[in-house]
Amino acid sequence: MRQFVTVLSNHPIAKGAMEMKVSVENSVIAPGTFFHVKTSELLRRPLSVANVEGDVVTFLYKIIGKGTQDLAERRPGDVLDVLGPLGNGFPLEQTGKRVVLVGGGIGVPPLYYTRRRLADRGIETVAILGFDTKESVFYEEAFCALGETIITTVDGSYGEAGFVTGPLARIEADVLFSCGPEPMLKAVAASHIEERYVSIENRMGCGIGACFACVCEAPGGYVKVCSDGPVFRAEEVTL
């Protein structure tokens, strides 16, 4: 569960997005799961898995506060204390179905690894990726190599202008996988796609289901984002 992983690279790849690659001991990692990463701060930071190649795991993150600033200062050769992989990811058993992947900003990364694993299974996918502006777009080529990819920017400086919900309205698909800011998840959870999954982000304590800090409201109570999720069926949570 706990691993001490070595940083291989760590640099900005777009406005507001850092990419870090680390080498791990155990690379059996389901798409949509996360690692709980120790930084200079007391509590760990949950980082989703953007990619796995051999024993190399890629994380994409945004510098928000002291913890992520500390991560941004790590250099190749530095060792990180991580717990994981944690949580439950996207269900990959979608044979014969068409999956639409909808990501927003720093919620895009887990959908890249998910799309790769769906492609391995021969499952047809279409991706809609929303960003603030042209400079914040990342992984466009990588996504395009795996199938149809639609980029949107809020300010219209690149791709389609507006939010991901614009192109989503005209997409025909059986299943939706989504990760991104809460207003976006709320919108896609109410979309016309029959089977909808959302990956939720929250402030976490332990990351393993013991502290009840990261709960999300659900019909009839709460669910724990870290251990019941972070991926839920849209009906399982109240967004």
């Binding site: 007391l42 913890g67 929250n202 976490m204 304590g205 502290c211 009840f212 800090a213 409201e217 709460y222």
Partner: peptide, 16 residues
């Protein structure tokens, strides 16, 4: 329990 956020980090500590 309470609504979220339920935790906030502080210098060498946390509020819950």
């Amino acid at each position: 329990g309470n609504a979220t956020p339920r935790v906030a980090e502080t210098a060498e500590g946390m509020l819950n």
